[in-house]
Design a protein around this nucleic acid. Structure first.
Lengths: 212, 212
DNA sequence: GCGCGCAGTTACCGATCGGTAACATTACAG
DNA sequence: CTGTAATGTTACCGATCGGTAACTGCGCGC
């Protein structure tokens, strides 16, 4: 009943102006992908129709289908874009030019804090998509690859920071973060709001090996 | 593309026989709710149509609408049923007749292990539903209430077990578990598979107050 | 045996879905 | 200025969606 994103979109100019603002001179394909990202993330991939996406992108359905073979193709592109963006953020925060491992981890926790306190937070777009999509949907492979890469980066940094059990620590931090994002959608503001302090405590108290 | 549950259901007799097996003499309403539970959990609430549910319940759409005002009503009933069942399990595992707090926690961790190693695991049905449904959907309130109650039970047990910071520990365990269930759907078997040992370690190493 | 309530059946409704065909229009390169 | 490629527009397709009407049939209590 409440989930009528198309009607909501038409009646309120909110998203319309919000998307339009970034649309000056951008190619149609990019516009469509941008609009799809906003809508898919806000309402999910199933409730949002292609017509709605096209209109939000200030174009039409035909142009959409000239750039994407099908809605499933668009979903894959949406997921890939999100994965690439997130990986880019991770590269920036944890890359070679981001300082010491401790600085990297601090910056990463700050970044997490920003995400969780954002009022537009609706969980991890990729995790949400995984929930919505069938296991055989091609986007699922993209999602799995992203989560794997993210986990690997964490292990790297924990190892560089000389934690005694970098894999275990990465698993722990990974699960805590995933849990916080999903539990924010289940109304549980309490547990998620304490994630950041939990992470800082974990990083401070986990055993390390002595410096060589 | 891959998500065509209706066709899948019709072509394969799998779910049909599986559900039919439990259907002897059960009232139509219960049959419908049972079929809806199976289908909603496997494929999500949006991709599954009411017709498919009715057929899986060995009845028809009219009977379905005699017992549920709308599909959204059915979704609410589905979520409520899941919440009640899960709370009942928690009552059994953590209730007054379940032994010492340590025994309760051990049994609960074992229960979690069972869930995560189940090959039909598709995450928490309620969390999945929350991802799919709009914030204003009436089922969302049910989900939030359930998560709150579950969290409260955990705090109780941790307090009874004389942990120094029962709320913090409950938050931690809660987030870890939620994270494991969602990350199983993102292909990350690694982190989730180590959840149980992480939980046992956490319970063993967290500080407690001295017995009075 | 009769009546009544519930379930089954069929057909239908308007709306929307993903996707396509045919054509008009723009923009830009030569 | 002209040719060409991309975009916009309109109308349409079959399928499926959630939901309803009208009628038939069965079973059970009285």
């Amino acid at each position: 009943m409440g989930s009528t994103p198309n009607k909501d979109l038409h009646s309120s100019a909110e998203l319309r102006t919000k998307i339009s603002a970034k649309l000056e001179g951008i190619a149609p394909r990019a516009r469509i992908l941008l609009a799809a990202s906003e809508l898919f993330y806000r309402f999910g991939v199933h409730p949002v129709g292609v017509e709605t996406i096209a209109e939000a992108a200030l174009t039409n359905k035909m142009t959409l289908y000239r750039h994407f073979r099908s809605k499933d193709d668009l979903i894959v592109a949406y997921v890939e874009q999100f994965a690439n963006e997130n990986i880019a953020v991770l590269d920036r925060l944890l890359g070679d030019e981001a300082g010491s491992p401790e600085q990297k981890l601090g910056a990463w926790v700050d970044h997490i804090e920003d995400i969780l306190t954002n009022d537009r937070e609706r969980g991890c777009a990729l995790a949400n998509a995984a929930v919505e999509l069938d296991v055989r949907h091609p986007a699922r492979a993209v999602i799995e690859g992203y989560k794997q890469r993210k986990h690997d980066r964490l292990v790297e940094v924990f190892r560089a920071a000389r934690y005694r059990e970098p894999e275990l620590l990465a698993d722990e931090v990974f699960l805590l973060f995933e849990g916080a994002r999903i539990s924010l959608q289940c109304g549980g503001k309490g547990p998620a709001s304490r994630l950041v302090s939990m992470l800082r405590g974990l990083l401070a108290s986990s055993p390390r090996v002595a410096a060589g």
